[in-house]
Structure formats: C-alpha cells, structure tokens
Nucleic acid binder design. Structure first.
Length: 494
RNA sequence: GGCGCCAUCGUUCAGCGGAUAGGACAACGGGUUUUCAUCCCGUAAACCGGGGUUCGAUUCCCCGUGGCGCUACCA
C-alpha cells in the first residue's frame, strides 16, 4: 500500500474517480471526474481511476464502454496518475481482479461479528418487502439470519448465502461532510446492507470501502446521491477499524426543469458533445462550474485558472442545473478565442462528413472560408451549413431570397453592369480591396443605394441573404467561381 | 410511507449579520454594419411562507411548504 504521508508530515491528497461500465459516461460522471482531478492538481495530489465492474448482470454490464472512459478524460486533458492501463502502486485498478480482497474482508467481518451470513432467498426478501410496502411500513431486511443459532447455521451451511453488515441496533452514526457539514442518522433507520452477493462478488458498499482504504484515498468526492448510504460506509470503516477519508458530496445535476438529468433533457452522453463539436476547454470550463464556484463574477476560466481557484469550499450544496444553452454560448466564446488555423483543422472532418470536401482544392477553399464564419459558429458541427454554398459549382438557391433580390428585371441589369468590372480584375489580384473598389464604382455609376446591388450580388453568388461580408465572400470564392455563378444567373434572367 | 439534502432575478452562479442585493445566459431596446453573426452601450428582472435569535436578518435557529435524492444480491 502506498503511504499517503509525505516526509514533511503533510498528507498527500489521493482522490479517485470510479466509473462503472453500465452505460456511456454522462455529463454528471465527467463532472465528478473533473472535480476530483482539479482538486488533485490543486493540492499536488494523485488522481486515480478505478473500474467498478462488480455488477455483472447482463442487462447492465457494458464492457464496450470501458475504452471511452479513458479517451473522454484525455479529450479534456485529464491524464490519471494511476489507472488500469498504466497501473500503479496499489493495483489492480479493476475490481473484478480484486475479488479475493473483498472475500477476505467479508470473512474478517464475520469473524469479528460485524457481519453475518444470510441464507434468506431472494423470494423471501421480495415477499417481505411487498408486505412492508402494503402495510406502509419502512422496507428493509428483518434480520432473521442475524440471530441464527449454531445448529441452525450448520443445517443451512450448504445453502447459498449473502453476507450482510450487522448494523448497530441503537445509537446514531455521525459524519462530517465537507460541503454539507455534520450529518447524523439513527442507526435503527439503516438496513443490514448486503456486502457480498451470493455469487461471491462484492456490492458497491464493500468494494468501495475496501478499495478506498487499500488505495489510501484521502478524499471521497462523489455525487450527492451517495449521501444517504455514507453512514453505511462509515459503519464499515468502523467495523474494520480503519480511518475514514474526508467526505465531499457534490450536488446533483438537474435539467432546466429541475428534474434529474436524463434522456428527456436531450443529450446527456458526454461523447455526444465531442461529436457535435464542443471544444475541450469549453466543456472543462462549463462542467467545472456545475456545482462549483470560485466565488467571483467571472464565467470564462482556462484550465490553469480553474486549478488555481479550486477549493472544496467552493462546491455548492444546492443542485446544479445543466443549461445546454449556456454551454452553447460558452463554446462559441472559445471558438472565437481560438486561432483560425485551429478551427480550420477541427472543421475539416465535419466538412468531409457533410461531403463538401472531396478534393485537395476543396481543402484549400475550406482554409480560406472557415475563418470567415467562426464568428457565427457555436459548435464545429455548424461549419457545414454555414459554408456549404462555397463548395461545388452552384449553390442551393433559397426561394425567398431569390424572390426578394433576383426577381425584378433591374436586378439582372445590375448584375450585368457589375460583371465586366469583376472580369477586369486579374485572377491573382482578386482581393477584397480590389473587388470592393470595382463593385463600388459600379454602384456609383448605377446611382442606386449600395444595398440594391450588394443584396442581389450576394444572393446570386451564395443563394441566400445571410453570410459573411460580400467582398470577403467573393475573394475567398475566387474569380473563376464568382464569374461562373454570376454568368449563370444572368443567363437565367434573360 | 420512512430517512436525508436543498431553497436569491425567467434560468444560473455570487453574496457567508449592516451593500443602491452583484455577474452571466436568455429576453428587450439602441449603436456599428452590405445581410446574419460578432462587437459595444443600455433596460427590465430575485432573497418561498411563518416564527424566533439580534440593535439589525437574504445571511444564524426552528416549523411549514416545495423541489430533489436514497430506500436492490445497481453503482
């Protein structure tokens, strides 16, 4: 076992993030990982990843999601100090590889009378609960096997059994939570929790306590849904005679309707946000602020800022609401802060996905075009609909736009007037400045307000009424394509 | 039902006994502009209710109400 005590006498912080492979990681899981990681970084401690795969019910066990756990964290720039791939001093880091430890621990507890074998069948337990519910009584095991005599036990010894914790019948269990303060519960309200299942595998309660202790975890930072079962864990530590870690229960994440975050709230799967083109720094920033606050009026924080400011005191006691709209805004902020070349690089896969990029030339076009639309991008995914008109010979024409700016005969005349001026510019001189000068002089000659020329031109070239500045658009498009499209539209007018 | 946690603008995060209760998102209004977006300026908007404690409560305590969580041989 590693020693959490440093030579200078201070405690080395060791925190853990223990995902369970029962489904794709969601926002809440990752938020908990971030909180743990920030705390480790802040304290110069260690961030440990541990796989809690003790639930082998085929309907829940999903080994296929295991690789994503690591890759999702890495996407955010989180690299565990110890995990099941790189190992570490207190491995293995996969609970299914630690089974003997839990069995030994359970045995120890039975020896000392802190736990007992229970031979009750699942059927009896179910019937018991049903009756309790019907009568409006609190549900829970009736402790029948806790008081078995030796002869009775001998008779049952060949039967399958679970191991249950012998919760004290009286008194109360008190513990201190770093965000909620002192919490106490009456022991008589606690059930004799199953520690070891009849298949010999541990439940969360046992495995988590045994591992946190043997891995020298100093702070248990987890979601508030664990608050009610913490007394059972405290009792377990006491039964083993071990010192408890510090308890830190972070608030739950709810949807904007204040209900627990679920599929109903749209996407809650973390990887979905990666796919949709959210930047790691935006996700890190936003998720860190979900249930934690630096206590000041600022929203945008770099990872370094977050680490600098992180403290357990900043974890809020009330639920955190997941506001997808605010995430969207924040992502837009980070896109605009990024260098154009980075956004171009990140955008190319989305453009390929949308079948807009097919050739080397298309990539060059993308390099010119993407920087023109970063101001209106909130996610990388939006790059395709924002730039699609640049690609291919002709854009798709929006009927309303055409109706408004290309229908009157004046518009055709206008375009015809501008065309030769553009043709007069050399292909390698087709720059924003020269294009603007050419178009402006055409406008002057026509003697009409500039919008009456600019709008038809834009619709003719892009098929729509909104987009980047017209001259930038034309320069990026290139002389050849501009003339091709203009001529095509003029020909159609006649 | 039992046990536990929580409670500030429409939403969210601050505020940890004495302030004109602050920031952000969204909304609305205005400016810039060839459109949209960006950017800039501005407006509106909150302490769940009732008791205490205190010279003084948004802040501390109790009750109520409401929300959420747990109540599995799931984590």
């Amino acid at each position: 076992m590693v020693q959490p005590i440093e030579r200078d006498g201070s405690m080395t912080v060791r925190v853990r993030y223990p995902p369970s492979p029962t489904g794709a990681q969601h926002i809440g899981n990752v938020r908990t990982a971030i909180l743990n990681w920030l705390f480790a970084k802040k304290m110069g401690g260690r961030f440990i990843l541990r796989l809690e795969d003790t639930d082998r019910d085929p309907s829940r066990y999903r080994p296929d999601v295991i690789p994503d756990i690591l890759s999702n964290l890495r996407f955010l720039g989180i690299e565990p100090d110890e995990d099941w791939e790189k190992g570490g001093p207190v491995g293995p880091y996969i609970q299914s590889e630690r089974l003997p430890l839990y069995q030994k621990a359970a045995e120890e507890l039975i020896e000392s009378g802190k736990a007992y074998r229970c031979y009750c069948t699942p059927e009896r337990i179910a019937a018991l609960r049903a009756g309790q519910q019907q009568r409006g009584e609190p549900t829970g095991y009736d402790r029948r096997c806790r008081y078995l005599t030796s002869p009775e036990m001998d008779k049952l010894s060949a039967q399958p059994f679970v191991v249950r914790l012998a919760v004290p019948l009286e008194g109360q269990t008190l513990y201190h939570d770093e965000v909620h303060g002192d919490i106490s519960v009456e022991n008589n309200a606690l059930d004799d929790q199953v520690l070891l299942k009849s298949n010999g595998w541990p439940t969360y309660h046992l495995a988590n306590v045994v591992d946190d202790h043997s891995m020298s975890i100093t702070h248990v930072i987890r979601g508030e849904d664990w608050l009610p079962s913490t007394p059972k864990h405290v009792l377990l530590y006491q039964a083993f005679g071990w010192e408890t870690p510090k308890w830190v229960h972070a608030p739950l994440i709810l949807g904007t309707d204040h209900k627990k975050l679920s599929k109903r709230h749209g996407d809650t799967e973390f990887a979905e946000y990666i796919r949709r083109g959210y930047l790691p720094e935006a996700l890190m920033n936003f998720l860190a602020l979900l249930g934690w606050s630096p206590g000041e009026d600022q929203e945008l924080y770099s990872v370094g800022d977050l680490i600098d400011r992180f403290s357990l005191e900043g974890i809020t006691p009330h639920p955190a609401i997941f506001d997808a709209n605010k995430l969207l805004w924040m992502n837009g902020e980070y896109i605009r802060k990024s260098s154009p070349t980075r956004i171009v690089d990140l955008s190319i896969p989305y453009l390929q996905e949308a079948s807009l990029i097919k050739t080397e030339e298309d990539i060059e076009l993308a390099e010119r075009v993407v920087p023109l639309v970063t101001d209106r991008m909130k996610t990388l995914e939006e790059v395709a609909p924002l730039t699609d008109f640049f690609f291919g010979d002709m854009p798709k024409y929006d009927s309303k736009a055409v109706e408004k700016w290309l229908k009157s005969s004046d518009d055709g005349v206008t375009l015809a007037k501008i065309l030769p001026r553009l043709e007069g510019i050399a292909a390698d001189q087709f720059t924003v400045n020269l294009i603007e000068a050419a178009v402006r002089s055409g406008i002057e000659e026509l003697g009409v307000p500039s919008p009456q020329v600019i709008h038809p031109l834009r619709v003719a070239l892009t098929g729509r009424t909104v987009g980047p500045g017209l001259f930038e658009t034309m320069a990026a498009m290139g002389k050849e394509k501009v003339l091709y499209r203009l001529k095509a539209i003029i020909a159609k007018e006649h």
